[in-house]
Design a protein around this nucleic acid. Structure first.
Lengths: 205, 205
DNA sequence: TCCTCGTTGCACACTGGTGTGCAATCTACT
DNA sequence: AGTAGATTGCACACCAGTGTGCAACGAGGA
């Protein structure tokens, strides 16, 4: 009876199990990103696994989507808090935010489509904290006269990151072109002059 | 045998039939706009009609969506060609375009969601002519140095009217606030300076 | 009055996805 | 070797939506 309290990795058994679980999650992002209406069977076969196995890890389709959303929220929150803590100008912070958010947004673009219909409410609720952080950043920009004030911060931030996701979901999602487009476009719509916007993306190409 | 060639309205029979048909179409926009996954049954009951009757007018769900899309294309094309023909500056033309497109975009916002998944291809194909007219307008703006050139006209126009639809689909779709927000935001992202943009929407409040 | 035709209500078959149950299998750990 | 547990393959019931068929019903038109 030599139990090491709570064993860190109980061994290669649980590891391989976690691997398949993670593979299912990763693949689910691709498959659902391609077609949000894809079924559990599509996800399973894409992960090289049987449908029954997927249900072993995620009792229902909602559980899968929820886990995916949790991941997205975690990653996005990490980027946002870090950027928010910096003392750079709001527009520079936003540019860096989009640049770093880009891979994440592209990866989780499926959530944009999944937000309406069936799971919309669940996803919307989990995205609350992210929305707040986003609004904070925009509000800071408005207070320092860096961003325009034609719309309240809450709405403006929603529209701006909606654009980022929309571009991440469009045809130009490949390569760095998409990231540039998303950054410049969102900066422009935030009221940043074109010259300043292009200069900001030039910094971190 | 007093047949008046092709009778304009064969009488009150066909009229009442067309009425129910139109009512089905109108209601379908509302219902599908609320939930793009709504079924024929939902549309039918919302139209005060039995499911079987809907199938009498539209043999399949795709036929319904196609007819809806045809309507949208017709209305949007009308607005676009008219605005495109004007000799006003491109930014002023765009402002007028959004202002007049707004009710239409809001009404047909469901097409945004329906564009992916199942009917996406059909809708996308029918929207081709609209896309071209849109790109023409943006290109004109870029050629006259009114719009920014950080993106090619084809893509920029897509992103810009994507934003208009996105705002039409959001919470602030009610009242004139949405129209203002959509106009200013799209103008900004097209590279129009903030002062000019606000002046343009002020003109036609 | 009779006829036409849109509408209705009910039936049905078909499809596709969901979630569950269970015995068999394979493999890492003891 | 023996065992626990993840995975598999196949079964099933269930549900929701689609599209069709057909015998009524009911109001406008000949």
């Amino acid at each position: 009876m030599c139990n090491n309290a709570v064993v860190p990795t109980e061994s290669s058994r649980v590891r391989s199990m976690n691997e398949t679980r993670d593979r299912i999650l990763d693949v689910a992002l691709d498959v659902l990103g391609e077609n949000p209406d894809a079924g559990m069977g599509d996800v399973a076969s894409a992960a090289g696994v049987v449908r029954r196995t997927v249900y072993g890890h995620f009792p229902s389709r909602l559980d899968l989507v929820r886990t995916l959303t949790e991941r997205a929220v975690t990653e996005m929150t990490a980027v946002l808090t870090e950027v928010n803590a910096s003392d750079a100008e709001a527009d520079a912070a936003w540019a860096e935010f989009v640049a770093r958010l880009w891979p994440v947004a592209h990866r989780y673009r499926v959530l944009l489509a999944l937000r309406r219909g069936e799971y919309g409410e669940a996803i919307h609720g989990m995205l609350g904290p992210v929305d707040e952080l986003l609004a904070d950043l925009v509000k800071r920009g408005q207070d320092t006269d860096v961003f325009a004030q034609h719309l309240p911060a809450g709405i403006l931030s929603q529209v701006a990151y909606g654009v980022v996701f929309a571009i991440a979901d469009s045809d130009l999602s490949n390569g760095t072109l998409g990231a540039r487009a998303a950054t410049i476009t969102s900066l422009l719509m935030l009221g940043v002059p074109e010259t300043r916007a292009t200069a900001l993306v030039g910094d971190q190409s």
